[in-house]
Amino acid sequence: MNIIDVVLLAMMVITALAVVRMRNLFAAVMLLGIFSLLSASLYALLDAVDVAFTEAAVGAGISTVLMLGTLALTGEREKKPHRPAWLPLVVVVVTGAALLYGTFDMPLYGDPNDPIHKHVADRYIERSGQEVGTPNIVTSVLASYRGFDTLGEVTVIFTAGVGVLALLGRGALSRRRRLNKEDDR
């Protein structure tokens, strides 16, 4: 058990609880950026350097900017909820307890003999040097062994861009204005 691990996890817990309590959405979004940056440091500690890099650039950077852009349009105060708070709490506690029960059967953290390391991963580690030739195993798995997956992911990003354009883009805006005018008449 690494002391830095524990400190980072504790800071993530504190940040997450602060997000729940925060009524000011601007502060909540900034805390989410901090949460994301903390998780990026944790990924780097867990040897996932590529993931840490992505999380720092995307989670802490772009998604904070987008959320702030939305807050500028929708207002940054959250209203007090009118419904009772105990029902969601019960649902969350029950779900969490079920998940916690599930972890007891999980293999130990960091054990080299976990089933997850015994299936295809060791082939990637042993053979990718000869088969693909790039030193970064993550790149060779991402681009070569699992190229189909990545093609799908890129298509999802493309679709999301098209979707945002369809919802808020210039064409959508003029169509909406025309509809609004017809409504007024």
Binding site: D50, V58, L66, I116, V156, A160, G163
Partner: peptide, 24 residues
């Protein structure tokens, strides 16, 4: 293990794209 890294790396970028769609 590099395999979870690959899955999550793409999931992060896809996640921000879908979050943007939700915000829209």
């Amino acid at each position: 293990n590099p395999l979870p890294h690959v899955l999550i790396l793409t999931a992060i970028v896809v996640g921000v794209a879908t979050t943007a769609l939700g915000l829209a």
